[in-house]
Design a protein around this nucleic acid. Sequence first.
DNA 1: GAGAAATATTGCGCGCACTGCAATCGTTGT
DNA 2: ACAACGATTGCAGTGCGCGCAATATTTCTC
Lengths: 202, 202
Amino acid sequence: MGLRERKKLATRRALREAAVRLTLERGLENVTVEAISAEADVSPRTFFNYFATKEDALLDDVPVSLDEEAREEFVAGGPTGVFTEDLGALLMASLLVSGDLGRQRADIALRRQLMDREPHLLPGLLSRFHDVERSVASAMAERAGVPLDDARSQVAAAAAMAATRQSMKGVPEHEEGVDELRARLGEAFRTLGDVFAPGRRG
Amino acid sequence: MGLRERKKLATRRALREAAVRLTLERGLENVTVEAISAEADVSPRTFFNYFATKEDALLDDVPVSLDEEAREEFVAGGPTGVFTEDLGALLMASLLVSGDLGRQRADIALRRQLMDREPHLLPGLLSRFHDVERSVASAMAERAGVPLDDARSQVAAAAAMAATRQSMKGVPEHEEGVDELRARLGEAFRTLGDVFAPGRRG
DNA sequence: GAGAAATATTGCGCGCACTGCAATCGTTGT
DNA sequence: ACAACGATTGCAGTGCGCGCAATATTTCTC
C-alpha cells in the first residue's frame, strides 16, 4: 500500500475519531464540521471529500457487509453443515472485525455511548444493519439454491440480524469472551425457534 | 374536536401530501421547503412548526406505536390465546390503520415509490419500525409477565416486525384482502419456526 | 357580542451544512 | 527533472433549520 492510500486512511480515521470524541464531549449539535476538521488538521472542505454528512463520519466504522471469506464458506454449506451453527459463525466473523476482543468491546461501548447521547443517529445505524441483513439474505438464498429475492430467506435474515443486535447489547457490561458471545447468539436463535414453532418442542 | 385542532390537522396533512407529491415528481433534492409551503398555502417558517426536517414530513403517516385497544387485548392474553395468532392480530390492527383496504394499499404503494426514488429516506422508515418494535417487545413482556427489558421478548419482537415488513412488501402488487395479508404473516411466522427450530418439525 | 387570554402564523436574521468550481499542492511514474 | 495524476484547499453560493419578536386567529369569560 502506497503512501497516498495510507495517508487517506489516516485522515479518514482522524476525522472519524475527532468527530466521535467531540460529540461525546459536547453533543453533536455543538460540534461543527469546522471544529472536527481543525482537530484532524485538514480544511473544512476536505471533510466533505470523505463524508457526505457529519453523521456519516460518526458511523464510518460500522460494518455494512459480510466478511467475504466467511460468506463463501457459508454459501458452500460450511463450516459444520448445521444451519443455525453456520449462520452464527458467519455473523460473528462479519461483525466482530478486530481480532482483539478488548478493542472490540471498547468500540461497541463507544457506539453505545454515541447512541445514548445522540438518539437521532439510530436511524443511520439501523440502516447499516439493514445493509448487512440484505447480504445475509442473499447468502442464505445462495446456500439453499433458491432465488436471491426469496421471501423465506429475507425473513430469516432479518430475524438473524435482530438476534445478533440483541446479543451484542450486553457485551459492553460483561467481561466475556468470543465464545460466550456466540453462546448468547445461539440462545437468541433458540428463542426464535421456541416462540415461532410452538408445540414442536423436543 | 375544535376548529383549531381540525385546522392544524388539515395543515399538517396538506404539508405532508404536498411534500410527497412534489418529491415523487421532481426528486427530494429539487423540492425546497419554500415550494412545499407554497403548495400548502402557509409560510416557510410554519413548515418548521410542524416538522423538524423535510424528511419528517414525508414519513409523517408511518405508524410509530401500537393500536392501544389491540395492545390491551394482546396483553390480557387474547383474542385467541394462541401466541402467534394473537401477535399477528396485534400487528395487523396496528399497522393497517385505515379500515379502507383500497386506500391502505395506495398508501403502502406510495411509500414504496418514495423509498425507490429516495433511498436515503429508508433509515427514517426503519427507525419508525424500530419504535413499533419496542412497543411490541414491551407488550410481549407484559403478556408473559416478565420484566419489560426481557431479552427473549426483544428478540421475538424484532423477528415479528421483520416478518411483518416482509409480508407487506407484496401488498401493492397483488389484489388481496386483509385475510390474505394475515395469511402471509402467518406463513412468515412459520418460516421463522422452521428455520430456527430445526429437527423439531411437527 | 366585546374584550382578554391563549395559541398559531409569519417575517427576519443568523449560523452552518453541504456543493460546484477552479487553483494549488503533493505524490507517483518515466 | 518533468509530466501526469490525484488530493487538498479557498471561495462563493444555496437552502435548511432555529430563535425571537410581531402579528393574526381562535377560544374563553363575562
